[in-house]
Design a protein around this nucleic acid. Structure first.
Lengths: 345, 345
DNA sequence: GCGCCTTGTGTGACCGGTCACATTCATGCG
DNA sequence: CGCATGAATGTGACCGGTCACACAAGGCGC
């Protein structure tokens, strides 16, 4: 134990060596569990380590060995439920593997800004995880220089990608499909869609799951409405849809959008689920407690984060090969906000 | 520009030196803007840097200079709005100052686990920001070894701390005071309080602001109800309070708790604000879109995060001294969930 | 013309580890 | 009994920067 309270330079490997009467290399061997160290010597070194309160300097380790045991997460936002949960999952898995987690926020989706952030992340050393649900993230994933270990957390790819592609996803295509089918099964003629930013591209997974369900049911395919990420965007989109009397079912790209839509319907005086059914996406903690409580599709974001780290971890160290594409199964959670369409139509 | 696509070892300062025909030290001088370098030399070095795509290795910089330009944020959670916003604010300010941001989650409040996390954070080098709104955070702040630069994001201290104390806070005591006064001014006999975890201690800032407002008004002081952080905790607490017919006003420790309380009141059939008024705390994005929309007190968490970083930045570099205790002024936002008590009592 | 200060540049050591190789000594085997 | 082999340990260089200092050249005062 370090009894002298002075804030002095922490003990280095050589300090330990002197204290134990061995060379610094022997100390290094003990630290790294090298087999050929005499037990008595190991004992002495460990005692010295304990006495001096030695901790291996992560910076020096990274510099000398090249391995940095660090991950940087690139994300457009830290406050939205899905993103924050993925981050939390990554951190959890990283902590278990004693990796450090860094974070970089993509404040702008503009190319130069994104490139700068990617550079900064690369400078930090170690691996990279990019949350690529939105334009900024997608762009960042594309801007990663070759050779830098990276895992992307992405929407369901349109076609099954080549094995070993460094991507992880929840099956949000399937989730959108399920939610849409649920609403159609209740008797709605069609389902309108309020999209999260990236999902307006024709290739978006959520959009295409929704579209497929409509097509299979022979339902007309309305234009997706562009939302933002938050409730405000949902509110704006909701007001637009609420004015159209033919709208009886709305699927939202996430639960925050759904919240805004619910509010808009309330303001316009269209009861949910009496006149209009609403379904969300993600099953955020508040979904169950809204009035009406929100029908939604649960996605395991934390697990997704853990999987992303696991994949990266496998790339960084040639350890146990991780399952190629860990996919969590989405789960439809039916609550109060969805029901049959009004009878009089 | 690096045209050869080979993923080879990035250029070092000595590679640049050779390319420019100078010594590595001169390159170092150019990088660091040292004045005594002949313009023509500087020119040549800069050209070489550009050509080789040289970027200064952050790890080596940290090892050699001791300064690491990094901050680690210790927090109990990344998904709650307040925490996530503080983190976002920190990241924003850190990015502007080209600091790297690391994150450590305090999964358990148990002493050993907290100590381990603090150690890990210390190993990362650089400064530390601890979000200390909850037991885990408070404990972590206490466990930081002396000599390690640290800033705590805390609740309003009970008494004005000594100048230069490394803390930052939003005035949540004042915020709770304001919200409580607002409810009392509407005519409620008293205001019940659903507390976030840390706030059950008598010293908690939010609790004491609430208590002071009650005392000044001569209102009876009910026992605070213990909530958790999320809506589920608010729901449980709300059910308890809803059964008590004397309850007509409820202040919640955050907006998620308030959401749960609203739901509980709805389930029990007590209209808001007709029979019961509810106020939240934080003004999270969803507060405005709930039905009824939520009266709450806005706190500038992002600004708080920025201030925390600013303070730490000032400690790490002897640069511009930062304002001692940046306090953001809370702002009461009155919405639909609060109104006068029912007339018949 | 000599010393002295300033400007511009180079050299060597160092930060705290790892890695490749050298060295010592005990052991096994032909 | 001599030598190859392996275990246990030590030495020097290196990762990519910074820091302290040495040193040469040019300008200035006297």
């Amino acid at each position: 134990m370090n009894v002298t309270g002075h804030t002095r330079r922490p003990a280095s490997i050589r300090d330990v060596a002197t204290a134990a009467g061995v060379s610094y290399q022997t100390v290094s061997r003990v630290i790294n569990g090298h087999p050929s160290v005499r037990p008595s010597t190991r004992e002495r070194v460990l005692a010295a380590i304990d006495e001096l309160g030695f901790r291996r300097n992560a910076t020096a380790l990274a510099l000398a060995s090249g391995r940095s045991r660090a991950v940087t997460v690139l994300t457009a936002n830290t406050t939205h439920y899905g993103y924050a949960s993925i981050l939390q999952g990554i951190e959890e898995a990283a902590r278990a593997a004693s990796y450090a987690v860094g974070i970089g926020v993509l404040e702008s989706a503009e190319d130069a800004a994104v490139a700068a952030e990617v550079q900064r992340a690369a400078d930090a050393g170690g691996g990279l995880i990019v949350i690529a649900y939105d334009p900024a993230g997608v762009r960042a994933l594309g801007a990663v220089p070759a050779g830098l270990p990276v895992v992307g957390v992405v929407e369901t790819p349109a076609s099954p990608p080549a094995g070993g592609s460094p991507w992880v996803w929840a099956d949000d295509r399937e989730a959108a499909y399920q939610a849409t089918r649920h609403l159609l099964a209740l008797g709605h003629e069609t389902v309108h869609y309020v999209a999260i930013p990236s999902s307006t591209r024709r290739t978006s997974a959520r959009t295409s799951g929704w579209r497929q369900a409509l097509k299979e049911a022979g339902a007309p395919e309305p234009r997706p409405v562009q939302g933002s990420w938050g409730p405000a965007g949902g509110h704006a989109a909701g007001l637009k849809l609420a004015r159209d009397p033919s709208v009886s079912a709305i699927l939202c790209g996430n639960d925050d959008l759904a919240l805004g839509v619910l509010r808009a319907l309330h303001e316009v005086g269209r009861p949910v689920p009496g006149e209009v059914s609403v379904a969300g996406f993600d099953d955020a903690p508040h979904a169950a407690f809204l009035t009406p409580s929100l029908t939604t599709v649960r996605l395991d974001f934390t697990g997704l984060g853990r999987a992303a780290f696991g994949l990266l971890h496998g790339v960084l160290e040639e350890s146990a090969p991780v399952a190629p594409h860990p996919v969590s199964v989405p789960e439809l959670v039916v609550r109060e906000s969805s029901g049959p369409p009004p009878a009089d139509r």
